[in-house]
Computed example of a mutant assay.
Amino acid sequence: MPVSGYTYLCRLEALTEGLPRRFVTEGVPVALVLTEDQVFAIYDTCSHSAVSLSEGEVDGCTIECWLHASRFDLRSGKPLDPPATRPVPVYPVRIEDGKVYVELQGQG
Protein backbone atom coordinates (compact mmCIF):
# COMPACT_ATOMS: atom_id res chain seq x y z
CA MET A 1 0.00 0.00 0.00
CA PRO A 2 1.44 3.42 -0.93
CA VAL A 3 2.48 5.74 1.89
CA SER A 4 0.61 9.04 1.61
CA GLY A 5 2.87 11.93 0.54
CA TYR A 6 5.85 9.62 0.03
CA THR A 7 7.35 8.22 -3.15
CA TYR A 8 8.52 4.61 -3.36
CA LEU A 9 12.19 4.30 -4.35
CA CYS A 10 13.29 0.71 -3.74
CA ARG A 11 13.19 -2.30 -1.48
CA LEU A 12 15.37 -2.05 1.63
CA GLU A 13 17.42 -5.10 0.61
CA ALA A 14 18.47 -3.26 -2.57
CA LEU A 15 20.61 -0.96 -0.42
CA THR A 16 24.13 -1.88 0.72
CA GLU A 17 25.55 -0.55 3.99
CA GLY A 18 27.75 2.48 3.32
CA LEU A 19 27.19 2.47 -0.45
CA PRO A 20 25.12 5.42 -1.75
CA ARG A 21 22.55 4.71 -4.43
CA ARG A 22 21.23 7.37 -6.84
CA PHE A 23 17.59 7.75 -7.81
CA VAL A 24 15.77 10.42 -9.78
CA THR A 25 12.18 10.85 -8.70
CA GLU A 26 9.81 13.62 -9.67
CA GLY A 27 12.80 15.16 -11.48
CA VAL A 28 14.81 15.36 -8.24
CA PRO A 29 18.15 13.52 -7.89
CA VAL A 30 18.23 11.72 -4.54
CA ALA A 31 21.01 9.70 -2.93
CA LEU A 32 19.82 6.98 -0.57
CA VAL A 33 22.34 5.87 2.03
CA LEU A 34 22.05 2.95 4.43
CA THR A 35 24.43 3.55 7.32
CA GLU A 36 24.40 2.81 11.04
CA ASP A 37 21.09 0.92 10.63
CA GLN A 38 19.32 3.99 9.23
CA VAL A 39 18.38 5.07 5.73
CA PHE A 40 19.02 8.69 4.77
CA ALA A 41 17.90 10.58 1.68
CA ILE A 42 19.89 13.61 0.55
CA TYR A 43 19.78 15.76 -2.56
CA ASP A 44 22.27 14.12 -4.90
CA THR A 45 24.12 17.24 -5.99
CA CYS A 46 26.96 18.96 -4.15
CA SER A 47 26.15 22.59 -3.34
CA HIS A 48 29.68 23.62 -4.31
CA SER A 49 30.41 21.83 -7.57
CA ALA A 50 27.11 20.42 -8.85
CA VAL A 51 28.45 16.85 -9.00
CA SER A 52 26.75 13.69 -7.73
CA LEU A 53 27.20 13.03 -4.02
CA SER A 54 26.21 9.39 -4.53
CA GLU A 55 29.61 8.85 -6.16
CA GLY A 56 31.35 9.82 -2.92
CA GLU A 57 32.41 7.99 0.22
CA VAL A 58 30.21 7.42 3.26
CA ASP A 59 31.67 7.54 6.77
CA GLY A 60 29.11 7.11 9.51
CA CYS A 61 26.47 9.80 9.00
CA THR A 62 28.50 11.80 6.49
CA ILE A 63 28.93 11.68 2.73
CA GLU A 64 31.96 13.16 0.99
CA CYS A 65 31.88 14.84 -2.39
CA TRP A 66 34.40 13.05 -4.57
CA LEU A 67 35.52 16.19 -6.41
CA HIS A 68 36.70 18.59 -3.67
CA ALA A 69 36.22 16.50 -0.50
CA SER A 70 33.46 18.56 1.13
CA ARG A 71 31.59 16.38 3.59
CA PHE A 72 27.87 16.72 4.31
CA ASP A 73 25.90 15.53 7.33
CA LEU A 74 23.33 13.01 6.08
CA ARG A 75 20.93 14.01 8.88
CA SER A 76 20.87 17.75 8.19
CA GLY A 77 22.53 18.31 4.81
CA LYS A 78 24.92 20.81 6.39
CA PRO A 79 28.44 21.00 4.97
CA LEU A 80 31.15 19.99 7.45
CA ASP A 81 34.21 20.90 5.39
CA PRO A 82 35.03 23.56 2.79
CA PRO A 83 34.87 24.40 0.00
CA ALA A 84 31.09 23.78 0.29
CA THR A 85 29.37 26.40 2.46
CA ARG A 86 25.69 25.83 1.62
CA PRO A 87 23.65 22.87 2.86
CA VAL A 88 21.88 20.46 0.54
CA PRO A 89 18.29 19.32 1.13
CA VAL A 90 17.56 16.15 3.07
CA TYR A 91 14.28 14.27 2.83
CA PRO A 92 12.21 12.27 5.31
CA VAL A 93 12.42 8.50 4.81
CA ARG A 94 9.88 5.88 5.80
CA ILE A 95 10.32 2.14 5.60
CA GLU A 96 7.19 0.01 5.49
CA ASP A 97 6.96 -3.68 4.61
CA GLY A 98 10.59 -3.64 3.49
CA LYS A 99 9.99 -0.78 1.04
CA VAL A 100 11.82 2.57 1.18
CA TYR A 101 9.76 5.73 0.64
CA VAL A 102 10.94 9.36 0.49
CA GLU A 103 8.91 12.54 0.96
CA LEU A 104 9.91 15.29 -1.45
CA GLN A 105 6.97 17.67 -1.04
CA GLY A 106 7.72 20.79 0.96
CA GLN A 107 11.39 19.86 1.24
CA GLY A 108 14.55 21.40 -0.07
Score class of each variant (00 low, 15 high):
residue 50 A to W: 07
residue 67 L to K: 15
residue 48 H to F: 05
residue 76 S to Q: 04
residue 49 S to V: 13
residue 18 G to R: 03
residue 20 P to K: 03
residue 39 V to C: 05
residue 90 V to K: 02
residue 17 E to Q: 07
residue 108 G to T: 10
residue 5 G to K: 01
residue 29 P to T: 13
residue 74 L to A: 09
residue 73 D to E: 13
residue 26 E to W: 10
residue 2 P to K: 08
residue 59 D to L: 13
residue 46 C to A: 05
residue 104 L to P: 05
residue 77 G to K: 08
residue 77 G to H: 08
residue 97 D to C: 04
residue 56 G to E: 08
residue 65 C to T: 14
residue 65 C to V: 14
residue 80 L to I: 12
residue 75 R to P: 10
residue 68 H to A: 06
residue 7 T to P: 00
residue 65 C to H: 12
residue 35 T to G: 01
residue 80 L to E: 13
residue 98 G to H: 00
residue 66 W to Q: 14
residue 48 H to M: 06
residue 34 L to R: 14
residue 68 H to C: 07
residue 108 G to W: 13
residue 66 W to M: 13
residue 78 K to A: 14
residue 5 G to C: 00
residue 5 G to S: 00
residue 71 R to L: 11
residue 47 S to R: 12
residue 30 V to K: 07
residue 62 T to P: 07
residue 98 G to K: 00
residue 16 T to D: 08
residue 37 D to V: 01
residue 26 E to M: 12
residue 39 V to N: 03
residue 5 G to W: 01
residue 73 D to H: 12
residue 90 V to R: 00
residue 76 S to A: 05
residue 107 Q to S: 08
residue 62 T to L: 14
residue 13 E to R: 10
residue 25 T to C: 07
residue 2 P to S: 09
residue 24 V to R: 11
residue 101 Y to I: 02
residue 46 C to D: 05
residue 92 P to A: 09
residue 16 T to W: 02
residue 31 A to C: 11
residue 57 E to N: 04
residue 108 G to A: 10
residue 60 G to A: 04
residue 106 G to T: 03
residue 106 G to N: 05
residue 93 V to F: 10
residue 53 L to R: 02
residue 28 V to N: 08
residue 8 Y to M: 11
residue 44 D to F: 00
residue 56 G to I: 09
residue 35 T to I: 00
residue 45 T to C: 12
residue 107 Q to L: 05
residue 67 L to M: 15
residue 35 T to Y: 00
residue 96 E to A: 13
residue 11 R to P: 02
residue 105 Q to Y: 01
residue 68 H to I: 08
residue 31 A to S: 12
residue 98 G to F: 01
residue 81 D to T: 15
residue 45 T to R: 15
residue 102 V to I: 09
residue 1 M to H: 11
residue 106 G to F: 01
residue 104 L to F: 03
residue 9 L to A: 15
residue 20 P to H: 03
residue 12 L to H: 05
residue 65 C to M: 14
residue 29 P to W: 08
residue 17 E to A: 08
residue 25 T to S: 10
residue 91 Y to F: 13
residue 5 G to R: 00
residue 71 R to M: 12
